[in-house]
């Protein structure tokens, strides 16, 4: 028996590097998988919602606590307020240990942490047509002022449950889509169809 058990991303065989759809000119959408990212759910303990909000604010070095759906990042750890007394945290795999430590500090006595990393895959969508592609699956108004600048919101994409986070990277919006892994096949079929019109570049190994 092998000492090392192979890890299989939910997107194995589903997201191959290359171009999808319209083949000339700049791609409208860039797609990449964020492998091995930590995805953690924080739920406040009874009576600790305020303390948790303060601790999240302190960690993010913000003046104001996160408002509903609002998110912010510090040192590779993105935290957003996804529901009453609930937060969703995504940590860059390169900073995983540090992020876990930070989250444990935030949660201590104030929240329970649930690890969803293996249960969901993360896809990054960027490019000038990323919002248009997402609009083919979700009814959220991602292009307007309805959502905070950086945000995370639970929704469905073509009836597939998803959590979409909008983050700003070098002045441009990047959409991080977290989807339960069992839906990987259906989601990628949808995504390929949704981006085909604009031309998409799939990045990967």
């Amino acid at each position: 028996m092998a000492d090392v058990i192979a890890r299989h991303s939910a997107l194995a065989g589903l997201l191959e590097p290359g171009r999808v759809g319209t083949g000339s000119g700049d791609a409208g959408v860039t797609i990449s998988e964020c492998r091995d990212a930590l995805q953690l759910q924080l739920i406040a303990r009874n009576g600790q919602a305020g303390a948790l909000a303060s601790e999240v604010k302190r960690h993010l070095r913000r003046k104001q606590a996160l408002s509903p759906l609002e998110g912010a990042e510090r040192d590779g750890l993105f935290i957003c307020a996804t529901g009453p007394h609930e937060y969703w945290a995504v940590a860059d795999p390169r900073d995983a240990a540090k992020s876990v430590k930070a989250l444990e500090k935030i949660a201590k006595g104030r929240a329970s942490i649930f690890d969803q990393s293996d249960g969901r895959f993360l896809v990054h969508l960027s490019g000038p047509k990323a919002v248009d592609a997402l609009a083919k699956g979700t009814s959220l108004d991602l292009g307007g002022a309805a959502l905070p600048g950086e945000c995370g919101v639970g929704t469905t994409i073509e009836h597939i449950p998803a959590l979409i986070s909008r983050r700003w990277l070098q002045g441009a919006a990047m959409y991080e889509v977290s989807v339960p892994r069992s839906y990987a096949g259906s989601f990628m079929t949808w995504l390929e169809e949704a981006t085909r019109e604009y031309g998409a570049i799939a990045e990967g190994d």
């Binding site: 759910q41 739920i43 009874n46 009576g47 969803q116 293996d118």
Partner: peptide, 15 residues
């Protein structure tokens, strides 16, 4: 029972 100090979530996909 909002007074109960319990937190829970689905981890169906994680395992």
């Amino acid at each position: 029972w909002p007074e109960l100090d319990v937190q829970f979530c689905s981890v169906s996909e994680a395992w």
